[in-house]
Design a protein around this nucleic acid. Structure first.
Lengths: 199, 199
DNA sequence: TCCATGTGCGAACGCCTGTTCGCCTATGGG
DNA sequence: CCCATAGGCGAACAGGCGTTCGCACATGGA
């Protein structure tokens, strides 16, 4: 994406945030200081083609910046990529300064109880390979997805539960191991105070 | 709001969720099974007047269902109503099936640690006088606001911490005591993963 | 009985808005 | 030099869209 294209995106984004509806072609032209609607259409066509923008043909103010519903992944099936459609159990809509390298994971089990993350909570995962000693993250170990504290010591890598009922998991040289990402937020619903959109 | 008006709101709401932009007057007419755009405008005028809907005059598809910024209350000052402006430290924007009898409270202290609610978490409070034995709620006791589990026994009312370092608090007959509301959701940000709008 | 309120009809007006067409300029490989 | 790519101009078209006007018909309280 060129600098010019980024400027258009920023304008559209801000307009939608400020007004709650998307700008018209002419409003974009005015805001960006070009005089022809054709120039704007040109730009929108390219932005849409690159996937930065979503439009619905011939419909007024139907511009969308695609990025609001963050998927909530439930029990992760073995053998498929984590973010596979099959694992999506719903969506949580977020105000969007968040990238598409994020998803929510519904916590299964009590192994992180003492870090105040309970069975059924939703944790926001930022997908990344960079994780530091002591950070909580999501990992894939021999096909199983798990939420643990990451510890890297002279004895090797350990995935630490936060619950005395569970044992630390050493990551062996020949284990299939992958850092899925780090935990950025925890959301817990109590007594039906909160909905996720159905998948 | 009449039943008919609720149906219109539901339609508009769903349309926006599904399409990302608001319906036109004619689309509403079609969707609601009325044949005149004037009827729809009539309805929209009333919905707007009652505050259920926001519009921008003469602008296509500018319908908004006011998405509410729920205030986040920080340290509650003594002597002022809980929801007083002075206590607001920011806002969290929620998709709106939530009433204005809700607010977020930023948790101060570790007294609910064993219920997985930590210092600095944001809890969504539904303001109500109705609370059941065993529910977590926010209370005002002799001017202090506190988050505890509510217990009602033959020995009286107790506010129970979830942390062995804190003692149960009996509510005496002459205490100034008020149930502020019940906890509906817990949100925790880790490592800057999440922003609240400034107040 | 009278009147306010909620809901509806159909037609017409006029601005709003996305699209199209043809043409132009600058930049940077090959 | 040729050409692809990014960006832009101005005019015109056709359908989208909110608004207005005048009228109609129930319901329910005064």
């Amino acid at each position: 994406m060129t600098d010019r294209q980024k400027m258009f995106m920023q304008f559209i984004d801000k307009f939608i945030r400020d007004n709650g509806y998307s700008p018209s072609v002419r409003e974009i032209a005015k805001g960006m200081g070009v005089s022809s609607t054709a120039s704007v259409k040109n730009m929108l066509d390219r932005l849409e083609q690159s996937g930065a923008l979503k439009r619905t043909g011939n419909i007024a103010r139907s511009l969308e910046t695609p990025s609001v519903g963050i998927p909530v992944l439930g029990r992760i099936k073995a053998g498929v990529p984590v973010t596979s459609e099959e694992n999506v159990e719903g969506y949580i809509r977020l105000d969007k300064p968040i990238g598409d390298n994020h998803f929510f994971l519904r916590v299964d089990g009590e192994s992180m109880r003492d870090k105040a993350i309970l069975d059924g909570d939703c944790v926001l995962i930022k997908m990344t390979n960079h994780i530091k000693h002591g950070q909580i993250g999501a990992f894939r170990l021999n096909g199983e997805v798990t939420l643990k504290t990451f510890e890297m010591t002279t004895a090797g890598i350990f995935l630490m539960p936060a619950n005395a009922d569970f044992a630390p998991i050493p990551v062996g040289e020949y284990d299939e191991f992958q850092v899925i990402g780090t935990v950025k937020m925890v959301i817990r619903a109590l007594e039906g105070g909160y909905d996720i959109e159905p998948a």
